[in-house]
């Protein structure tokens, strides 16, 4: 598992804060793996562990095949529309896929549905504007 060329998954990515932080993010903590930081290229994966799966439940949105990738897994995230890319390390569990089933982010009519990745601001801002909130991505490893 590395920042490489093998297709892993595709869907919608959002961003979140973690680690020591300002404002309401201050209580977010270091995430499920304990070392998540907003200013590092980190991410949250919905199947980071069995306990994580119980929280995110992507299977309820038809994303039951998302493979297990635990703390420290490395992925390459490519934005659907611009093709800009960033390499991230999984340090947390998320997003809460089950609460947003069917939500889509499209590019030129091609849509990626369901939230399957949360990125830190550092990582997300390299592939999209933080003010966009969510974006379609392809994930490789």
């Amino acid at each position: 598992m590395a920042c490489s060329t093998n297709y892993l998954w595709r869907g919608e990515a959002t961003w979140f804060c973690c680690g020591a932080a300002w404002g309401p993010c201050g209580s977010a903590g270091g995430g499920a793996c304990g070392n998540c930081r907003s200013a590092s290229n980190h991410g949250a994966w919905p199947n980071a562990s069995a306990a994580c799966w119980d929280i995110t439940r992507p299977d309820l949105c038809g994303e039951g095949g998302i493979p297990r990738r635990g703390c420290g897994s490395v992925m390459r995230v490519v934005q659907e529309c611009s093709k800009s890319a960033v390499c991230i390390t999984i340090t947390d569990c998320g997003p809460r896929t089950k609460s947003f089933c069917g939500e889509a982010a499209c590019c030129n009519g091609v849509c990626r549905t369901n939230r399957i990745l949360d990125l830190t601001p550092a990582a997300y801002s390299q592939i999209a504007s933080l003010s966009s909130g969510k974006t379609g991505v392809w994930i490789y490893e």
């Binding site: 300002w22 200013a39 601001p121 801002s125 390299q126």
Partner: peptide, 26 residues
């Protein structure tokens, strides 16, 4: 052509751009 772009295992990155920096804080 987005499909053609994804036909490659991974899209190549543009080497022209220097690595970006990121900062957060108060």
């Amino acid at each position: 052509d987005p499909d053609a772009a994804f036909a490659a295992p991974t899209p190549p990155l543009d080497p022209a751009v220097a690595e970006t920096s990121f900062a957060e804080g108060l």
